[in-house]
Each structure stands twice: as C-alpha cells, then as structure tokens.
C-alpha cells in the first residue's frame, strides 16, 4: 500500500477522507452549539457533558488533530507538485462553461485562512478565560459568558462571519469532490451532488453564523 499512498490518486483519497472527518465534525459542532438559542445554561451543560466524557473528548480530539495534520500536509505537498505540473499558466482565464469555479481554484487560500481561524478560535474559547458557574448544583465552565463577551465586539463577529463564509466555499467544493476522489461517483446521482454540496455547506454556515449574530444582538 505504500505505492498507493504516494501516488496522486492515493493522496486524494487521504485528502477526501480527512476532509470528511472535519466536514462531519463541523456539522456536529454547529448542531450542538444551537443549544445557545435555548438558554445559556443548556449551552453550558452541553459543553460540560462533552468535556466530562473523556473517551469521547480525547478520541474526537485525536481524530481531528490527526486528520488536520494529514489534510494540511497533503494540501501543501499537492499544491507545490500541482503548480510544478502546470508550469506556466495560461495568460487568460477561461470564461463561460469552461471556467474553473472560484471555490475550486482557491481551496489552498481558503484552507490557509481557515487553519489560522481554527487556531485563533481555540485560543479564544478552549484556552480562553475560564469562568465558572453552578447549574443544578454542578460546577462547570461558563462558556456562555465568554461567548457573550467575545461576540459583544463587532470586529469579532465580523471576523467569524467572514471565516464561516470561507468555510462555506471550502465545504461546497470539498463535499462536491469527495465522492469522485473516493471513487464513489455514479451517474445516477452525479447531478444531485452539486445541489447536495451547496445544501450541506449552506446549512452548516448559516447555522454557525446565526450563533455569534444572536449573541451579539442579545448583548
């Protein structure tokens, strides 16, 4: 299998699989955070339940970190080798039906900004100010308070919205490509994948964007 993993096709398999791990994670993350709309207490309890389950927490973190390292490493490797394969690019970009979609053309740029966003996001929340609260006699982290502090600042909200729009583009191309990379594309649903990838990307993005906006408007 070493030949498989060093081939251009094998690398795209890994790119797709690791991307799928994150695509699944962002959906779960977005859906779980929706508890903020119910009440800050429920949001805190949801967060507390996750960090209390060490197997789930460390298992998920390990899978995410490993996937991210492989995804980023391969992205750099493939971008360099693909650019050298292309050599000189055409001086004019195609228009009309032969045009390369912008989202597909700028995956490496979106990815770089998203990586920076992930790091900043972890510094802000996971490793941010630790407030405590007691709900139903249980001591837990008051993440809702931190969230409301962060998103009372318009620049933070704007930064999140922009990053999430990039996530939308990244998910759209990623979800739309993964079936082909993994060899699962089939004529019977080829046409529906485009619509499904837009739907997935938009649901995740709108869901995520609604959260800082809601907190900002409530503050």
């Amino acid at each position: 299998m070493s030949g498989f993993l060093s081939s251009s096709v094998g690398k795209k398999y890994l790119m797709g699989l690791t991307g799928l791990v994150w695509a699944g994670f962002v959906f779960g993350h977005m859906a779980g955070n929706m508890t903020i709309f119910v009440s800050p207490d429920l949001y805190n309890q949801y967060g507390h339940a996750i960090v209390s389950n060490k197997i789930l927490l460390y298992g998920t973190e390990a899978a995410l970190i490993l996937s991210l390292l492989v995804h980023v490493g391969l992205a750099i490797n493939l971008t360099i080798s693909n650019r050298s394969s292309k050599g000189i690019a055409s001086s004019v970009k195609a228009s009309g039906s032969k045009r390369t979609p912008l989202a597909a053309q700028t995956m490496i740029i979106q990815g770089t900004i998203l990586l920076a966003f992930i790091i900043l996001h972890l510094i802000t929340f996971k490793y941010g100010e630790y407030y405590e609260t007691t709900i139903d006699g249980v001591k837990m982290r008051d993440l809702a308070r931190l969230m409301s502090e962060v998103f009372s600042q318009p620049p933070a909200v704007a930064g999140y919205v922009i990053s999430l729009l990039l996530l939308c583009a990244h998910l759209k191309h990623g979800f739309g490509s993964v079936f082909q990379s993994l060899g699962l594309l089939h004529p019977s649903y080829q046409g529906k994948i485009k619509a499904a990838s837009w739907a997935y990307a938009i649901v995740v993005t709108i869901g995520f964007i609604s959260q800082p906006l809601y907190v900002y408007m409530m503050s």
């Binding site: 394969s85 032969k98 390369t100």
Partner: peptide
C-alpha cells in the same frame, strides 16, 4: 510523466 493530481474542478470534462 509529471502530470498533476485531480482537484475535481470539472474544467477537463467541460473542455
């Protein structure tokens, strides 16, 4: 031969 990897942009099939 030095050809690149597929990014599924779809430009190939369109052209």
């Amino acid at each position: 031969e030095g050809f690149g990897a597929c990014s599924t942009t779809g430009s190939c099939s369109a052209a």
